[in-house]
């Protein structure tokens, strides 16, 4: 149904997210860090971005800021994946314009609920 971009440097994480989203029929684009993400969305229209915070090359916060700077993605919902201990990062993300956050590890049902909530 919707096209969702998932960015995480852990393959298993990306796999789990894709698997969950596929099961309800979403299309998933994967990227392993911020830079790759920006490259991979060229020419495509993405409805939702789910990004990890800690990544090499370009971390989640920077990716967030870069996306928000693009006209196409000014109002796209962007969700950050975070572990509980990173409260400071969460604040940073909010300031940078994140739509919301998902706590790791995520429960697939919860993920689907949040995705539905955010995609309307």
């Amino acid at each position: 149904m919707a096209t969702i971009l998932t960015v995480d440097d852990t393959a298993s994480m990306r796999q789990m997210i894709s698997f969950t989203l596929h099961s309800v029929g979403h299309e998933v684009i994967q990227a392993s860090d911020g830079q790759e993400a920006l490259k991979v969305i060229e020419g495509k229209k993405v409805d939702l971005v789910i990004a990890d915070i800690n990544m090499p090359n370009m971390d989640g916060i920077t990716l967030l800021k870069s996306l928000r700077a693009l006209a196409d993605y000014k109002f796209t919902p962007i969700l950050m994946l975070t572990t509980e201990s990173q409260e400071a990062k969460r604040q940073q993300g909010k300031v940078a314009g994140a739509t919301g956050w998902i706590v790791k590890p995520f429960n697939p049902e919860q993920l689907l609920t949040v995705v539905k909530k955010v995609l309307g």
Binding site: T10, M13, P105
Partner: peptide
């Protein structure tokens, strides 16, 4: 069961983060 597994399989990400 799938749901449970999906949650558990995220262990690697979490442990590697913590270790790093």
């Amino acid at each position: 069961d799938v749901r449970n597994v999906v949650v558990s399989l995220q262990f690697h990400d979490i442990t590697s983060q913590k270790l790093s």
